[in-house]
Deep mutational scan, measured.
Amino acid sequence: EEPGTYGVALYRFQALEPNELDFEVGDKIRILATLEDGWLEGSLKGRTGIFPYRFVKLCPDTR
């Protein structure tokens, strides 16, 4: 996996908008950016989108 910051999904998130990223509990999401209003941008399984930061637990930065 690529170096960078990752978050592990604490809850299932179902995308409601085309720019959102849906995921299941336990998915490991690569964090790409921190956005305003409590949203993160991340990538998972070749898809990129935004999601609420409270749905993931950030992992320590590992290489």
Results as ranks from 00 to 15, higher is better:
E1D: 08
E1L: 13
E1N: 08
E1T: 12
E1K: 13
E1Y: 10
E1F: 09
E1H: 01
E2A: 05
E2C: 08
E2N: 14
E2M: 13
E2P: 06
E2S: 05
P3A: 08
P3H: 14
P3E: 13
P3D: 11
P3T: 15
P3V: 11
P3M: 15
G4Y: 13
G4A: 12
G4H: 15
G4P: 15
G4E: 15
G4D: 13
G4V: 13
T5L: 14
T5E: 04
T5N: 09
Y6A: 02
Y6G: 03
Y6S: 04
Y6W: 06
Y6L: 09
Y6I: 11
Y6E: 03
G7C: 15
G7A: 15
G7V: 13
G7K: 00
G7P: 01
V8P: 01
V8I: 14
V8D: 03
V8K: 07
V8W: 02
V8H: 08
V8T: 13
V8M: 14
V8Y: 13
A9P: 02
A9R: 01
A9Y: 05
A9L: 04
A9C: 02
L10R: 05
L10P: 03
L10T: 12
L10W: 07
L10V: 09
Y11M: 13
Y11E: 13
Y11L: 12
Y11A: 15
Y11R: 15
Y11I: 11
Y11G: 07
Y11C: 11
R12C: 06
R12F: 00
R12H: 07
R12P: 11
R12T: 10
F13T: 01
F13I: 06
F13H: 15
F13G: 03
F13Y: 15
F13N: 13
F13C: 05
Q14Y: 11
Q14T: 12
Q14I: 10
Q14C: 09
Q14A: 08
Q14W: 05
Q14E: 11
A15L: 04
A15N: 05
A15S: 15
A15R: 04
A15K: 00
L16W: 06
L16N: 15
L16R: 15
E17M: 11
E17S: 12
E17V: 07
E17R: 15
E17D: 10
E17Q: 15
E17F: 06
P18D: 13
P18S: 12
P18E: 13
P18Y: 06
P18T: 08
P18H: 09
P18A: 10
N19C: 06
N19A: 10
N19V: 05
N19Q: 10
N19Y: 09
E20D: 04
E20A: 11
E20P: 00
E20M: 14
E20W: 14
E20Y: 14
E20C: 13
E20H: 15
L21Y: 00
L21Q: 07
L21M: 01
L21E: 04
L21V: 04
D22F: 13
D22T: 12
D22H: 14
D22R: 10
D22E: 14
D22N: 13
D22G: 13
F23G: 03
F23T: 02
F23N: 01
F23P: 00
F23Q: 02
F23D: 01
E24F: 09
E24A: 05
E24N: 13
E24Q: 13
E24P: 02
E24V: 06
V25W: 06
V25M: 11
V25A: 12
V25I: 11
V25E: 06
G26V: 01
G26Q: 12
G26D: 05
G26P: 00
G26M: 00
G26Y: 01
G26H: 03
D27P: 01
D27I: 02
D27A: 07
D27H: 00
K28A: 03
K28W: 06
K28C: 10
K28P: 05
K28M: 06
K28I: 09
K28S: 06
K28H: 13
K28D: 01
K28Y: 06
I29Q: 00
I29C: 01
I29S: 02
I29Y: 01
I29M: 02
R30L: 11
R30Q: 09
R30C: 08
R30N: 09
R30I: 07
R30S: 07
R30F: 07
R30P: 11
I31S: 00
I31K: 01
I31N: 01
I31A: 00
I31R: 00
I31F: 00
I31H: 07
L32R: 05
L32A: 01
L32S: 07
L32N: 12
A33L: 04
A33T: 13
A33Q: 10
A33E: 05
A33I: 03
A33V: 07
T34Q: 10
T34K: 13
T34W: 10
T34L: 07
T34M: 12
T34I: 11
T34N: 09
L35S: 10
L35P: 10
L35D: 04
L35R: 15
L35E: 01
L35A: 09
L35K: 15
L35Q: 13
E36F: 03
E36Y: 03
E36H: 08
E36V: 02
E36L: 03
D37S: 09
D37F: 05
D37L: 04
D37V: 05
D37P: 06
D37E: 07
D37T: 08
G38T: 00
G38N: 06
G38I: 02
G38R: 06
G38V: 04
G38W: 00
G38E: 04
W39S: 05
W39V: 06
W39Q: 09
W39L: 10
W39P: 02
W39F: 11
W39C: 03
W39M: 12
L40E: 00
L40M: 12
L40F: 08
L40D: 00
L40A: 15
L40I: 09
L40N: 02
L40R: 04
L40T: 07
L40C: 15
E41D: 02
E41N: 06
E41G: 02
E41S: 11
E41L: 09
G42P: 01
G42N: 00
G42Q: 02
G42D: 05
G42S: 01
G42V: 05
G42C: 01
G42L: 07
S43E: 15
S43N: 09
L44M: 05
L44F: 10
L44A: 07
L44V: 13
L44E: 00
L44R: 08
L44Y: 08
L44S: 09
L44G: 01
K45S: 09
K45H: 14
K45R: 11
K45L: 06
K45W: 08
K45Y: 08
G46K: 02
G46W: 03
G46H: 02
G46I: 03
G46C: 03
G46T: 03
G46Y: 01
R47W: 03
R47Q: 05
R47C: 05
R47D: 02
R47I: 06
R47K: 15
R47S: 04
R47F: 03
R47M: 03
T48I: 10
T48L: 07
T48S: 08
T48H: 08
G49V: 02
G49N: 06
G49K: 02
G49M: 03
I50L: 08
I50Q: 12
I50A: 08
I50F: 04
I50P: 00
F51M: 07
F51V: 10
F51C: 02
F51G: 01
F51K: 04
F51W: 05
F51Q: 00
P52V: 01
P52Q: 00
P52G: 06
P52W: 05
Y53H: 13
Y53W: 14
Y53S: 15
Y53L: 14
Y53M: 15
Y53G: 15
Y53T: 15
R54I: 05
R54F: 09
R54V: 12
R54A: 13
R54T: 10
R54E: 12
R54H: 14
F55R: 04
F55T: 06
F55Y: 14
F55I: 04
F55H: 10
F55L: 11
V56D: 03
V56Q: 04
V56C: 01
V56E: 00
V56I: 11
V56S: 03
K57I: 05
K57A: 08
K57M: 06
K57G: 05
K57S: 12
K57R: 13
K57E: 04
L58R: 11
L58S: 04
L58T: 09
L58C: 07
L58V: 12
L58Q: 04
L58I: 12
L58P: 08
L58F: 10
C59H: 10
C59W: 08
C59E: 12
C59S: 11
C59Y: 13
C59V: 14
C59K: 12
P60E: 12
P60A: 12
P60Y: 12
P60Q: 14
P60I: 10
D61S: 13
D61P: 13
D61H: 11
D61Y: 08
D61N: 14
D61G: 12
D61V: 11
D61L: 10
T62Q: 12
T62K: 09
T62I: 13
T62H: 14
T62P: 14
R63Y: 12
R63K: 05
R63M: 14
R63C: 12
R63N: 15
